[in-house]
Design a protein around this nucleic acid. Structure first.
Lengths: 322, 322
DNA sequence: CTGTTAGCGCCTTCAA
DNA sequence: TTGAAGGCGCTAACAG
């Protein structure tokens, strides 16, 4: 009965008594509309996808929840999947989400260099994508991320302000533009302070805490030691902290420490950790909103937007002035 | 052309040359099969759902990833959503997943008491559900969880072994069966050690760290103070640790501490935290496997299974013998 | 082995 | 305001 559809979608007026009867029947039969059939008919799934590298890294669940909330507010649901920072897996997931006919995809690119063509192809095919957190080179796509350069310079300037001069930076993979920009922020901050760049204090790491730990232990064994360490992201920061513990350096007495990205419960670390906090929920929410705007006003401009959200410095004991 | 379908699904043999031609066309046209239509036809979505209270709590992403991996291995994908421990939201999500025609649901029940009928109704309607982590009362359903009683008694026995006698327990909401069982494990451990139960040392909390903090601060102000605190889950443990910090008690010198559930990076806390670790990945994976077995052998037994996985004690400094 | 066909359940015309 | 009918893209069954 087509009338049932009218009642459910409310698209066509239906008389009160009939409507009541329909709802009654729905309840009695415990009827649940089949979204699959509806989607096939309307070619609208009201579903978005989000691909993150690994949702066991605390930053990503926050992004997802921000996006989920924004999507729900507009009647969409969100499918979250993990790429493990693997390019092939990312390709498969994009393809899967596309086959599932999500109406748009929030993509935190895999750290393994993603062939620009992978994204460009999807875009050309009309799949709507918003890049979150990690910004691709050379691809014209909507992006939402933290102000990367600022995130680093805010942290480094804080370390300078409390009196440190030999500040080492530990980065993630330089294949990520964000990481390059954070390194740039470090250099700018030093420059503005009139300090020379010491290449020996630039420690290029990756996103695996164990690797970063090993790197730092090795670097810290050399002298002269830096008097502060700044890390450009959470997993890297975790690795560096473990290295400090392993080599027996106390912070802030022996060496100061600050990192971009909150560690879970970092107020409970002893000493508590100075952190440049990314507005993760907001990043996810903003990205979802941009995506939904594109979906709902297909007429929108062709200009792709690039939103950069401000990070915030949370000073802890690890960079306390002595 | 039905033949295309044969080529893609591989269900019917197709001659080599024709098959090559089809694949070529698929590539050229950048064809992506429409899973929506396929699902409508076959009434199989090859998708599972998982509802967790809040995936920003570190334990849950691990469960999800365990389930995701198990599902992927068998060609299924997984939709993860958050209930915020809210009964109404959980109802909506169950209904949504059902409408989306997921083939089964992994459910970590909301802490807000879930009307047994909510789950029972779904079950009757033929929706396959496996309860994960939190076990419902009175509902006959497949369940996978940690050995709750053991999780508590292992931790408490450890505290006893290092010499503590006045051990306080801080629990989550007693509306959760798991929490009642963990409390039971505490009592059993004391009993086996021949110690009497002191009701003043049973601190009934909830899953909000702030509330637990306040509770603990108040309890700790009284004397005599316990000489150890045992917490039955992560968020509760977090709250208790903050209370210790706030009232200036050092661990293990002033008071010993242990908790069920890993805190993120708890090796970096100073002192490092003694933890009863739950096999989260395994819990998720096992639950997904049980669910998929039910789906794939619809003929399976009617007996519902209850799997309890063993937790593991990880001793840190917070309970060190002085 | 290959091509044709009938729905899956729903929503959207369109006619009554 | 109501009901009937077509078709979304796919696959399974069947005919060639």
């Amino acid at each position: 009965m087509g009338t049932v559809s009218h009642v459910i979608t409310g698209s066509v007026p239906v008389s009160e008594p009939l409507r009541r009867k329909v709802w009654a029947a729905i309840r009695v039969l415990d009827y649940h509309p089949n979204h699959v059939a509806r989607s096939l008919k309307t070619s609208k799934t009201r579903t978005l996808g989000i691909i993150v590298p690994d949702m066991t890294i605390p930053y990503f669940p926050k992004v997802i929840r921000g996006a989920e909330a924004a999507a729900r507010k507009r009647g969409y649901s969100l499918i979250a999947v993990n790429s493990d920072d693997d390019g092939d897996r990312q390709r498969d997931l994009l393809s899967l989400l596309r086959s599932q006919r999500v109406e748009g995809i929030l993509l935190v690119m895999a750290a393994a260099p993603t062939p620009a063509s992978q994204i460009a192809k999807m875009l050309e095919a009309g799949v709507r994508i918003v890049c979150v957190d990690r910004i691709p080179d050379r691809v014209d796509v909507d992006c939402v991320s933290v102000e990367d350069t600022d995130a680093a310079s805010i942290g480094v300037e804080h370390l300078l302000a409390v009196g440190h001069r030999r500040i080492a930076i530990v980065t993630g993979p330089q294949s990520l533009k964000n990481e390059r920009q954070r390194l740039l922020g470090y250099k700018l901050a030093l420059d503005r302070a009139g300090l020379p760049l010491d290449e020996d204090l630039v420690w290029l790491g990756n996103l695996r805490p164990e690797d970063v730990s090993a790197l730092c232990r090795e670097k810290l064994a050399r002298s002269p030691r830096p008097d502060a360490i700044f890390c450009t992201n959470g997993p890297t920061g975790l690795g560096a902290l473990r290295a400090l513990r392993d080599v027996g350096l106390k912070t802030p007495e022996d060496i100061a420490f600050a990192t971009v990205d909150e560690l879970m419960a970092d107020d409970l670390f002893y000493p508590s950790i100075t952190t440049v906090v990314q507005p993760a929920l907001d990043i996810g929410g903003t990205a979802a909103d941009i995506l939904l705007n594109r979906i709902e006003n297909a007429a929108g401009s062709d200009e792709s937007v690039m939103v950069r959200l401000r990070p915030e410095l949370k000073v802890g004991d690890s960079s306390r002035r002595l």
